[in-house]
Simulated assay, not measured.
Amino acid sequence: MSAYDLARGLHILAVIAWMAGLLFLPRLYAYDAEQADKPEPLRTQMRSLLQTWQQRLSGIILGPAMGAAWLFGGWLIWLDGTARGWSFLLEPWMIAKLAGVLALTGWHGFLTAEGRRVRAGTSVRTGRFWRMTNEIPFVIAIVMVLSVTTEWTLG
């Protein structure tokens, strides 16, 4: 097994975990937002449970998976750059992938900040908002995966 194969495999696993978290956390926020109509004490119990799940998902899976995806992706870039040269960083497929990484990282940051607002009781987002935005990471991932697997080029 080469270092490149190891880095690629670990990167793929980290991205799978990161994407799972990015797709599931907004659904938990939607469920949380919809508890306002529930009677007490069910509302309080459900919100407590949902917020525990949100914190665990963010802290145990989402954050570490993003860090690992960045780490192993950086390792892949370094391996490619030192073996083949750094010009691939200017290819349209790589620019699209890196733009996607930044977009997913930004969405991750937004979800993290919103989690703090949810726990503080200051979030104004509705369950409908979370359901409508839930697929944003997947759309970004489609562009990223297709740009890498087809290696869009300039010519």
Rank of each mutant, 00 (worst) to 15 (best):
S87R: 09
R117V: 01
L42H: 07
W130E: 15
G100D: 11
T105Q: 12
H11S: 12
D32I: 05
I142Y: 03
S2M: 09
Q55F: 04
Y4R: 06
H108I: 02
A113M: 11
R125S: 09
L71N: 11
V101F: 03
L57E: 06
S2Y: 00
E151Y: 01
T153D: 15
R125E: 12
F72H: 07
V15H: 04
K97R: 03
L25N: 06
A96R: 02
F72V: 04
R125K: 08
T105M: 10
A65P: 12
S123L: 01
L104K: 01
R116V: 02
E151R: 10
F72K: 07
L111V: 05
L28N: 12
G155Q: 06
S2V: 03
M1F: 01
L98V: 08
Y31C: 14
T122V: 00
L10D: 14
E151P: 05
L62Y: 02
F129Y: 13
Y29W: 03
L102P: 02
A3W: 07
T112D: 15
W93I: 10
M19F: 01
S48D: 15
R47T: 07
A69W: 05
S2P: 04
L111H: 07
E91Y: 04
H11R: 06
V15S: 08
P64C: 08
L89T: 06
H11A: 09
G9W: 00
L146E: 12
F24P: 08
W70L: 15
D5F: 03
T126E: 14
S147V: 04
G63Q: 05
G85K: 09
P26E: 12
D5E: 14
L6Q: 10
L76C: 01
A36K: 06
Q45V: 06
A120S: 11
T105L: 11
R27M: 13
T153N: 14
L76T: 01
M132S: 10
A69V: 08
W86G: 15
L146F: 14
G63K: 04
G121V: 00
A96C: 13
Q51S: 06
P26I: 02
F24N: 10
A99R: 04
T153R: 10
L111F: 01
